[in-house]
Design a binder for these strands. Structure first.
Length: 119
DNA sequence: TGGGTGACTTGCG
DNA sequence: ACGCAAGCCACCC
């Protein structure tokens, strides 16, 4: 089809829809978004959709984090530190990765216990 | 046209 | 406790 809408697949678009649905002051995990899109086993591709990020202004990728509460270091919008600033500005609670300090985390992770988005 | 890769997650050894 | 492997689906070359 010569339809221009063919540039976006249902899943791809669904990811954007879900991410935009994330309420301010909350965050969601790739797996969480994957389930909401209908592909609980395609969490990998959720990140890929954000990687495409055709609308960074409408798609707050910084609101999408890992299962641990942190996001991709270096591939994000500008840096994990910048993410903390943005999320914190939204009202998201942060906490030092004390549990993952041994794992070598970036240092700060989103307090999923308090700010993980509840569909 | 076909093959390879990837912002993940979970389970098993 | 940690490390490794598999699964998923669409995009890129």
């Amino acid at each position: 089809m010569t339809d221009a809408s063919t540039s976006a697949s249902p899943f791809f678009t669904a990811v954007y829809e879900v991410v935009q649905r994330i309420p301010k002051g909350c965050v969601a995990t790739y797996g969480q978004v994957a389930v909401l899109t209908g592909h609980p086993h395609s969490a990998r591709y959720v990140g890929y959709a954000l990687h495409s990020n055709p609308n960074p202004e409408l798609i707050p990728c910084h609101r999408v984090v890992f299962r641990d509460g942190s996001l991709s270091p270096g591939f994000a919008f500008g840096g994990s530190e910048c993410q903390r600033q943005l999320l914190e500005a939204e009202g998201v609670s942060f906490k030092p990765s004390e549990s993952a300090v041994n794992a070598g985390e970036s240092g700060w992770v989103v307090d999923l216990d308090v700010c993980q988005w509840q569909a």
